[in-house]
């Protein structure tokens, strides 16, 4: 299994390498900055969803060792979110970078995107083996934050698209649907059903023995 990590590492770097290659060759079309933004953002979302897909995939295939890739995928997702933000800040806004603060305050899609980046920082910072050990149970609680990140990412994308444009809304819709599927898989249906049964039994019992107040 260890041998497969370097190839995955290289694979995750490939989108960035291709983007850099296209940028230096001037083959990003008439609006290269928008291309850089869209492609880095797309890969950030894809890698976030890939990270969330590891656990379901592990359960479905029974290959428990897949969990070894999760941290790398998650860190690469963070890496692409950082690249996306850096492109927006340094290349797109450039000399007008202070506009960022105004945008965070006023524009919901920027607020959502920026919040996603902020949420990822503590997760990336505590991704080491040592931090896992140090935080113990709290590590898992902290890392549940990751579920909010793709949601914010999808909102960031959907709110940016011109309204009325049904076709352009498809991409964020697909990402949103994938995210929803990954989350629905995580709902502990069996436990919920069990809980519901207990609840029903409880209500039934309650009707059978009315409260003293009702009796009066």
């Amino acid at each position: 299994m260890a041998w497969s990590k370097p190839p995955l590492f290289a694979l995750c770097l490939l989108p960035l390498a291709l983007l850099a290659w296209d940028a230096t060759r001037g083959s990003l079309g008439p609006d290269p900055v928008a291309q850089l933004e869209h492609r880095s953002g797309d890969w950030a979302l894809r890698l976030l969803l890939a990270t969330l897909a590891v656990t379901p995939l592990r359960r479905l295939t029974g290959v428990a060792k897949l969990v070894r890739y999760r941290r790398m995928l998650g860190l690469f997702a963070f890496f692409y979110v950082c690249a996306h933000l850096a492109i927006y800040l340094l290349i797109d806004l450039g000399g007008y970078w202070t506009q960022l603060f105004d945008e965070i305050a006023k524009k919901p899609y920027i607020t959502a995107g920026f919040a996603a980046w902020l949420l990822l920082i503590p997760l990336a910072a505590t991704s080491t083996q040592r931090m896992m050990k140090r935080l113990g149970r709290r590590w898992q609680q902290l890392h549940r934050l990751v579920y909010a990140v793709p949601l914010l990412g999808v909102l960031h994308y959907a709110w940016m698209v011109k309204s009325g444009n049904v076709i352009a809304h498809r991409a964020p819709l697909y990402y949103g649907a994938s995210f929803a599927a990954l989350m629905l898989w995580r709902v502990p249906w069996a436990r919920l059903r069990g809980g519901l049964r207990t609840l029903r039994a409880g209500t039934a019992a309650a009707t059978r023995c009315p409260t003293p107040a009702a009796r009066r």
């Binding site: 083959s27 008439p30 797109d92 806004l93 000399g95 945008e103 899609y109 940016m160």
Partner: peptide, 23 residues
Amino acid sequence: RWSQATERRITGAGFGLFGNRIA
């Protein structure tokens, strides 16, 4: 949903990535 304070000037291929934003 977005600011209209500045704009990105599209000049065409062969132009740099930087410094395209203007007021």
